[in-house]
Design a protein around this nucleic acid. Structure first.
Lengths: 207, 207, 207, 207
DNA sequence: GATGAATGAGCCTTCATTCAT
DNA sequence: CATGAATGAAGGCTCATTCAT
């Protein structure tokens, strides 16, 4: 009831933004229709131009807003004081959280990855960097390597593999699901967390 | 005369198709312009409709043609008689070949992955399945597990991870490159093959 | 308090009117933008509609105000008691004053002259008529003709020529300046007064 | 019948151009409507953009075409071998021809004169210059002055006055007609030619 | 009086598609 | 096969005008 109220009280700008992100996610920047966004948001089309000057600008503002929402939801469970196992688990959890919670983010990400030199991608990369997680991960792997707990390997390749197994998996999951004939997607997804952590740790830890 | 056409001068249809795939890859289905395809192909716009009835149809025909070209280039080095190590290496090589050789394929793939229920994605999955590679991989992992050479694990999760580390990496590489501050992309890519094979094998093999 | 308003701070209406006349002069009635007028005047757009019901009405009120301002500045030096030479000189001076003092008037005049059956033009003509100057001029020329001081000619044609040499010149001056390659416009303009008076008088006076 | 055929056979471009010049003359660049031009020309609106890329460009092309048409109609009766009287007469005739034949030209001219730094005005001035008439006039007045046939005066002022009495008159005629209460406009116009020539010659000739 | 937000009609322009030749 | 011209249905954007506060 209360949450319903919150929905109803959303400002025009917020309504436009949330309609926009869904439209852009579903149809892409070129395929999106301003008329449809206006209709979905329940506002006059001209209002879109009143609040956001152009479709192009609306696109970027909608994405910026969405990214900040998505990243705001992240828990900062990844701390440098944790063990390697805890860190890896947390990282995997976070990615599952991000991609599992919202379908729009994945679509926008995919469409922007197809765009050469996309500023959105640059922004996402920067957001990830600024979260400090890659650094924590890098330093932990380095110190573990020095302590002889993990193998001698290219740390950046390892991180690249970890990221790929997470983001990459979510992205290519429609293909994987079909190729591997996975019928019960939900249980596969919930088992994924452990599988990734195990494979990665087994892959890097000595013995 | 005939040889002239075949060897030196691409037919109108071929010119249209290769212009189309580049246009669709760069701008997406909605952003692509029939005029631009015609101009790039050096043909009259009406010719496109003469040969391919609609933009929509051209899109699918161009992709079908492109996928068959890309997969035709694949060597069938993955054989069930090989060792697990050889199989993994071959699989990784193939993915590197596909994504490294042609930028269009990656873009098309990304855009289609963003499209819910994309028939293109279904087709690609089917092509992969029909190549037999997933089956070979599955069976080999199964038999190795039964022989006690690899750990007890969900084979499909393992394959999912392997695919993710390959396709997934190529797809998210723009982000990874930025996050990890990789300056020499080429050498990172050429080292990737070994890194993936090593991580995967270390991750699954016992001892 | 009151004096503050009157002397230092122009009222909202006045600010709107002076912004409007400049906007309409520069862009024409169709090209003028209510938003721009509001911004220039530093008022809210709705205020324009509060004070002047429509853009159309604002247009006419702005012009009316401007015309009355321009004509109010005119000195009434043209009197029937003067000599023909004095009258001609005064008339020429007045036109120079009007067109020289303010660029907006000329632009508005031009745009309205392009409008078939413009009420603004009718009003301007009426203002000129009511000033009495044409009548004074007509009667003086008539009496001089009867006295045999000036040639037998169509007085109205003569007046038409005089007006043309004044208003007409100011209007077509951008063309004249280019065609005659006039570099020092200011000195040309200041010499214009005498040239017009001389030509006209020489043209009409006997001997 | 033949002339009808000529009208009917006009190409799409020509039909657009002639509709456009009328629309732009009547409503100005800002007030003109592309829809209306298309309708008047009897063509699909998109054709306008097919042949002329934008409203702006159509404007300039329509005017360029119109100017060249108007100036092409001009007879080259003004020759340096003629007497001053003949030259003046010819010049006046030409202006009457131009402004009398076509109402569009006058309107376009007026609207452009209101535009600061108009390229159209520059073009018209250049066309006039290139016709050689101003030069012929200047040289003739100069030689006559040296021969002592005309007074010592600023020749450029004289030419400016002549141009004003012609172009200027046509332009301000709606005002003049009202101020002078001219009811029979046609006869006034036909008498104008002689009046201008007489006034100018009397004004400059000695004795 | 004053303001920010809202509206609806309409404008310029584009684009997939088709037609006549 | 090939072309230039044509079409109709939008699509993005603007603008005069109004409303609620």
């Amino acid at each position: 009831m209360a949450s319903e109220n919150i929905n109803e009280v959303k400002t025009t700008q917020q309504r436009i933004l949330s309609s926009a992100i869904r439209e852009f996610a579903e149809f892409g920047k070129a395929g999106a229709r301003v008329d449809r966004i206006a209709e979905t948001a329940g506002v006059n089309k001209a209002m879109i131009y009143y609040h956001f000057n152009s479709k192009e600008n609306l696109y970027y503002e909608a994405i910026a807003e969405h990214i900040s929402q998505v990243t705001a939801n992240l828990q900062r469970r990844v701390s440098s004081s944790n063990t390697l196992e805890e860190i890896i688990s947390s990282v995997v959890d976070e990615y599952i959280l991000i991609f599992g919670s919202d379908p729009c983010f994945k679509q926008i990400l995919l469409r922007e990855l197809a765009e050469e030199g996309s500023p959105i991608i640059a922004k996402i990369a920067e957001t990830i960097s600024r979260s400090g997680v890659p650094n924590i991960l890098y330093n932990k792997l380095l110190s573990e390597m020095e302590k002889g707990r993990i193998k001698q390997l290219d740390i950046r390749q390892a991180i690249a593999s970890l990221i790929s197994m997470n983001i990459g998996f979510f992205i290519v999951s429609p293909i994987v699901v079909k190729v591997l004939n996975i019928s019960d997607i939900d249980s596969f997804l919930s088992a994924r967390r452990k599988a990734v952590v195990d494979l990665f740790l087994s892959g890097v830890l000595i013995k």
